[in-house]
């Protein structure tokens, strides 16, 4: 199940930035690229919590991220 979720996350990640390259190559419109990325984003946030836990020893309590 975890491996499946990881695979879906990977596909979703590619789906997030992949359309931008297709748009760059004039393959799809900007609007289409944005909608595909949004769909991939939703998939990412559903699939990823299934396998990604919290990292040990969080660092952002002491260091603000810039």
């Amino acid at each position: 199940m975890k491996n499946m979720a990881k695979l879906v996350s990977l596909v979703a990640l590619i789906g997030t930035f992949g359309p931008s390259f297709v748009f760059l190559a004039n393959g799809i419109s900007l609007e289409t690229a944005a909608w595909i990325s949004l769909f991939a984003t939703i998939v990412w946030f559903i699939a990823t919590p299934m396998w990604m836990g919290r990292l040990e020893h969080e660092i952002d309590e002491e260091s603000p991220m810039i």
């Binding site: 990640l13 997030t16 930035f17 931008s20 919590p49």
Partner: peptide
């Protein structure tokens, strides 16, 4: 943590677009 890889992907996509 969950969003981090996705955010990097979105940042990169912003530049490409």
């Amino acid at each position: 943590n969950i969003a981090a890889p996705w955010m990097i992907a979105v940042f990169a996509a912003c530049g490409i677009v």
